[in-house]
Amino acid sequence: MTLATAILLTVITAATPLLIAAIGELVVERSGVLNLGVEGMMIMGAAFGVVVAVVTGSSLLGVLAAIGAGVALAAVFALLTLGLAVNQYASGLALTIFGLGLSGVVGAPFVGIQRDGIGRIAIPLLSDIPVIGPILFRQDPFVYASFALVAGVAWFLWRTKAGLILRACGENPVSAHALGYRVLRIRLYAVLFGGACAGLAGAYLSLVLTPFWTAGMTAGRGWIALAIVVFASWLPLRTMLGAYLFGGLIVLQLHAQTAGVAVPSQLLAAMPYLITILALTLIMAMRRGGGAGSVAPAGLGQPFTPDR
């Protein structure tokens, strides 16, 4: 394996949790709901994933538990914002605070328990293709899942009637409602899907990337996933591009750190956050200048109550 392939492999590994969480949030936001609780759902997924995997000895059960934890937290969010029409910003923040706390409590007895990560699966024939074979087709199951999610979401949102209806709920819930669509129910499904994705992304952190539990191990990745959705103009393929860009930057920072670049390690560690700000600023400056991209769903973040 050449150095370049090795680096690209680590880029994909670093980008995959961002991609999975961001693609879930993209669907949520396309339905008109802004769930700021991605960080909370993600860390719950990470905690429940590793705890259940350690207790049962099964990685698969761990992954399922992680998805379940994300969905459960998303359900609480849905109850508040859809059922009770509560402010979405504040509910998302509550979700993050609650998730960070509960994950810490649940994970506390498991700190430092190491387990084998989930191995890679080589796809026959395809993995033998030079260069791209090892990068794309000799990966862990999560990476394949992320590819499938991007393709599936892109197909669903733009090639199916259900996807069109979901986007209509995000653009103009009042009209969608007037046409007879059940806006709240559709938004509920979207929010739960987002929770499942965030939970799955969390499982990737604690079962593959660093196969043990440390409190706060998401380290802002949920927030970066939110930023990627904005950066990607709410488009699935650009979300993939955005996630790999961020993954690449994170890897670059790690390599610089180990190479002993004469810059404080804290500055390198701050790079992902600074770059997020820079990327958001650049993309907004471009849009202002009539640049590319569809903009945010028109109904994003506004509560909807059907009987008004």
């Binding site: 508040l80 979700l95 993050t96 605070i97 609650f98």
Partner: peptide
């Protein structure tokens, strides 16, 4: 220690 965060999150809910 994170128990405090759990209660704070609950309170906000």
């Amino acid at each position: 220690r994170d128990m405090t965060l759990v209660f704070q999150g609950l309170l906000l809910f």
